[in-house]
Amino acid sequence: FAQSDIDLVQQGNTLVITGGQKKPEPQQQEILHQGLATRNFKQTFNLADHVKVAAANLENGLLVVDLVREIPEQLKPRRIAVGTNGLSLNGQDNNAILTQEGVATRQAA
């Protein structure tokens, strides 16, 4: 197959590769041996989440598809700094008291 005979389409998480839209050769020829089949084909691949096709190359009759995983910023893990304005755990009493600054503190039992 040539590059113009192969189509790659990505719809969501599905990659569809179709090929073989060759024009039929005239039936007048007498063929002694036909080595490779040149019929139409369709292959479907289910991709993982956030995977996109970066490039596709046809090298020596072999189709090479480069895939890239692109995770959106809101789904990436983010580091949260631990500050001093959090919940203070003094004593063993589990009743938290809200102070005037809006910070919950524990009342000593």
Rank of each mutant, 00 (worst) to 15 (best):
F1K: 03
F1L: 05
A2L: 06
Q3L: 05
S4T: 02
D5E: 14
D5F: 07
I6Y: 05
I6H: 06
D7F: 12
L8D: 03
Q10C: 01
Q10D: 00
Q11S: 06
N13S: 15
T14N: 03
V16Y: 00
T18D: 05
G19S: 03
G20K: 04
G20D: 04
Q21H: 08
E25G: 10
P26M: 02
Q29N: 11
L32W: 13
H33W: 12
H33R: 13
G35H: 13
A37W: 06
T38S: 15
F41Q: 09
F41D: 09
F41R: 08
F41A: 09
K42S: 14
K42Y: 01
K42V: 05
T44F: 00
T44Q: 06
N46D: 15
N46I: 11
A48T: 05
D49K: 15
D49H: 07
H50A: 05
V51P: 01
V51I: 10
K52Q: 08
A56R: 04
A56Q: 09
N60K: 15
L62F: 11
L62V: 15
V64H: 14
D66C: 00
V68I: 15
E70M: 07
E70G: 03
E70H: 05
E70S: 09
I71D: 07
P72T: 06
P72G: 05
E73S: 10
E73F: 09
E73G: 05
P77V: 01
R78N: 13
R78S: 14
I80A: 14
I80Q: 15
V82A: 07
T84A: 11
T84K: 11
T84S: 12
L87I: 13
L87H: 09
S88G: 04
G91C: 01
G91I: 01
G91N: 01
D93A: 12
N94L: 15
N94E: 14
N95Y: 12
N95H: 15
A96V: 12
A96S: 10
L98Q: 13
T99K: 10
T99L: 11
Q100S: 09
E101Q: 12
E101M: 06
G102N: 11
V103M: 07
A104S: 07
R106W: 03
R106C: 00
A108R: 06
A108G: 01
A109W: 01
